[in-house]
């Protein structure tokens, strides 16, 4: 069931758009903001609120890279794997992260602290390699800094 806060926020979005469906992406963002991911149940709840079929809502949810349809950890690490970061050696950062966290792409640490995901270009190519953790951008990365960076997140 959606919370009162979620329903209030989605209702507010519905007032901004000419047709209910147009609030679909915003609704998904709102739910994910509250729960970190979007479950099958939430998809059904959003669908009934927006007069859409669950398949329709899910087709939107699964299209976008930043809507998570599986549970994620408390902090999501998005490592840029696009071309400038490739040239500047992001794979070293990738290997070090996987070694430190004992996980691969798409997995979460056992303590639920981190999820590691590859990500398309972060638009900071003059400071490659780069990654984001939650809302924080880290640039000009070096392997030896990673441990310290991860320590900031509980």
């Amino acid at each position: 069931m959606l919370s009162d806060t979620e329903i209030a926020q989605i209702t507010h979005e519905l007032q901004q758009v000419p047709v209910k469906k147009a609030a679909c992406i915003e609704a998904l963002k709102i739910v994910q903001q509250e729960r970190r991911w979007v479950s099958d149940e939430s998809i059904e709840d959003i669908a009934s609120l927006l007069d859409m079929s669950t398949a329709e809502v899910d087709s939107v949810a699964t299209f976008y890279n930043l809507i998570f349809r599986r549970p994620v950890g408390r902090h999501v690490i998005l490592l840029c794997d696009s071309i400038s970061c490739y040239v500047m050696g992001y794979t070293k950062i990738q290997n070090k992260l996987m070694e430190l966290l004992h996980i691969k792409y798409g997995q979460s640490t056992d303590d639920g602290r981190f999820t590691l995901l590859p990500n398309a270009c972060l638009g900071t190519c003059d400071h490659a390699p780069a990654l984001m953790i939650d809302n924080d951008l880290y640039r000009d990365l070096k392997e030896e800094e990673l441990e310290k960076i991860l320590k900031k997140y509980e």
């Binding site: 071309i83 270009c121 638009g123 900071t124 190519c125």
Partner: peptide, 11 residues
Amino acid sequence: DEMEPGTFKDR
């Protein structure tokens, strides 16, 4: 929605 890999001008 600047997302062309290698592009960071609009930022």
